[in-house]
Nucleic acid binder design. Structure first.
Length: 636
DNA sequence: TTAGGGTTAG
């Protein structure tokens, strides 16, 4: 029997009076409707089976148009079940589908998330055109199977078919990261050869490919040579900078393009907010918040997620939570951003409380990383371990390597270094740089020299050019009074020609970002700032400060070491902030690297003698210093 | 018929 009908038309309309047994030819004559339009009407009314029965008796040409209309309807409505019915009807009636219709079927399956079925159609095609290939490549690209997409593209080239601008834009989006770069460059030469170089879709895909591979200069070149720019190409270059932590460049690019009248949408603002979070630019962030509310942009939920992140990274948990609380709907990203915010501030209890109240959304790997790292930063060792072990063997989420790294951090922080080493020996992964790095920090905090040496040996073999590792090892030796070993570390560093990433700290005052570099000699106020650092230094000496010379690994005398320490960028930024800010407010400094032991001591004691609260956001977390103590409990 | 940019962690 035929499926029950749901009438679309009121009883007085001609369509309503048609019986389901009325043949298509008759219906179309009566209604003066083309057959494909009539079939579409039936399909829209849930009468697909009737439509298919009527199709069986039609001529090839009408069937082609009919199937096309039906598949289009299924694609538009992502109606997989109906699409499958159309497909099986084609098979059952031995209909020989032309390339076009097979491609439409492939697209239907891909849009309904049935990648394997799409591939089956693709593999079964006797002939394929550039659209079939592009649709299949795109299906893989959009579902995260980038290498399969690239492999398919290479196969397509071998068949002698020529890619068009659709294919090139798609495949470039699949050449992601450093591994994709080599192939991406080859595609770029194909783009030039085929004179698609000025195509705005191909161009934005190309510049994005370079930006994702950290080749920002090439990305910029492509952008500059685009004859036409649109919202996507402009957003791509801004997000390219932001994702490489080139936040100032991202902001400058946005300002320039905005003044030139660029179109902005929610993706543009989401990328901009990432850059503002990196700059701790709270005032700008608030302005963007106001702007996006006024514009009533679609996909506001994505922007709210970005704003939670921005406010938390700017040290304003209150605003972050306000945005979170007022969201009518949240995604797992909203929860994760809020959890990360609390974790960055060392608020372990708030992390756990929020995690336990998660409803309506399923936690993902990021959630667990945020919770475990939040427990670690908040000193909740047992709670964190409990959560990890509930993951092992649990149904919700199998722990990944990053979660194992969090456990090592948890154990290290609690001083259970041997346990952490045992955990590393038994885990199903090779230990990573991050794991050894966090354990080395733990050895410093807990004064474990022998484990520190063991860990440092492994870490330095994997990462011999990171100056921070040598500094921590030197701190470990210095704390144990092993000065000869401090010298040895310095020599090791020299042998490995270690290049230290320059330390950089910034402070926002009066809507201006003031940035200081280590030993800054170029700042216009350098003399006054240095004098202020010296003044603070004298004051805190009276309450017990002594410089930690093991933080300096240059081969110079102690006096020179002290001078180097006093030139550290966070000290300059703190001094500048004290000179030019009004009394009472929190002084917020942001640093690109981890804060060193000496600057940490300095900042704590400055908070005591000046009675000012200091917030130092380093590359890992927030340090809130008040009256001589820090929220990190001296562990970082 | 087929195409490009985005939000949370590390």
């Amino acid at each position: 029997m035929l499926a029950k009908r749901t009438p679309l038309h009121p009883p007085h309309s001609k369509l309503y009076s048609l019986s389901s047994y009325t043949f298509l030819s008759q219906s179309t004559t009566q209604l003066n409707l083309p057959p494909d339009a009539y079939l579409k009407v039936l399909c829209l009314n849930g009468r697909l089976k009737e439509a298919l029965i009527e199709m069986s008796i039609l001529g090839t040409d009408v069937r082609f148009r009919g199937y096309d209309a039906l598949i289009t309807e299924c694609v538009n409505r992502k109606a997989l079940r109906e699409g499958e019915l159309v497909h099986s009807h084609m098979i059952k009636t031995h209909y020989r589908a032309p390339v076009y219709l097979d491609t439409r079927l492939l697209i239907m399956y891909a849009k309904c998330g049935k990648l394997d079925d799409a591939r089956e159609v693709f593999d079964g095609m006797l002939q394929r055109n550039v659209v079939s290939w592009t649709a299949m490549i795109s299906a893989y690209s959009q579902t995260g199977f980038q290498s399969v997409a690239v492999g398919l593209f290479r196969w397509m080239l071998r068949t002698g078919l020529f890619p068009n601008e659709f294919t090139l834009a798609t495949v470039l989006a699949s050449c992601i990261g450093h591994l994709g770069l080599e192939h991406g460059r080859q595609v770029h030469s194909l783009v030039i050869k085929n004179k698609y170089n000025s195509h705005v879709y191909v161009g934005s895909s190309l510049l994005n490919m370079y930006a994702k591979a950290s080749e920002i200069h090439d990305a910029r070149m492509v952008f500059e040579f685009l004859p036409v720019r649109d919202v996507v190409s402009c957003t791509s270059i801004i997000s390219g900078y932001a994702q490489l932590n080139l936040d100032n460049e991202a902001l400058e690019m946005f300002r320039k393009l905005y003044n030139q009248g660029m179109e902005c949408n929610y993706v543009t603002f989401a990328s901009l907010l990432t850059a503002l979070a990196g700059l701790s630019a709270l005032e700008y962030g608030k302005q963007v918040h106001g702007l996006v509310i006024r514009r009533q942009l679609p996909f506001y939920i994505v922007l709210q997620n970005s704003m939670i992140y921005m406010y938390a990274k700017c040290g304003s948990l209150l605003y972050a939570r306000r945005v979170f609380d007022y969201m009518p709907e949240r995604t797992v990203i909203s929860w994760n951003a809020m959890l990360v915010g609390y974790g960055d501030h060392g608020l372990g209890r708030e992390v756990l409380c929020l995690f336990k109240s998660m409803r309506d959304v399923k936690s993902d790997a990021v959630t667990y990383t945020a919770v475990l790292s939040g427990c670690s930063h908040g000193g909740l060792t047992d709670e964190g371990l409990g959560i990890f072990y509930s993951m092992v063997g649990g149904k919700e989420m199998e722990p990944e390597i990053g979660h194992y790294a969090c456990v090592i951090d948890l154990l290290g922080r609690a001083g259970r270094i041997e346990k952490a080493l045992e955990f590393i020996r038994n885990m199903p992964f090779e230990p990573s740089i991050a794991m050894w790095g966090s354990l080395l920090g733990a050895c410093r905090v807990h004064g474990n020299v022998s484990a520190g040496e063991y860990v440092a040996q492994r870490l330095l073999s994997m990462e011999p050019k990171n100056a921070g590792n040598y500094v921590i090892l030197s701190n470990i030796y210095a704390d144990a009074g092993r000065w000869e070993d401090v010298v040895k570390v310095r020599e090791m560093m020299k042998e490995n020609t270690v290049i230290k990433e320059p330390g950089k700290s910034s402070i926002n005052l009066n809507k201006t970002v003031h940035t200081f570099r280590s030993g800054d000699r170029s700042h216009p106020q350098k003399d006054k700032v240095n004098a202020k650092v010296r003044e603070l230094y004298e004051k805190i000496r009276e309450v017990g400060y002594s410089p930690d010379l093991s933080c300096v690994l240059h081969d110079v005398d102690d006096e020179q070491k002290e001078r180097i320490l006093l030139g550290h960028s966070e000290k300059l930024a703190i001094a500048f902030g004290l000179m030019f800010s009004s009394q009472g407010g929190i002084l917020r400094v942001t640093k690109n690297l981890r804060i060193c032991v000496d600057c940490h001591n300095f900042a704590k004691l400055v908070s005591k003698v000046t009675k000012r609260e200091l917030s130092v956001r380093d590359s890992k977390r927030f340090h809130l210093m008040a009256n001589g103590t820090c929220s990190c409990g001296d562990f970082w």
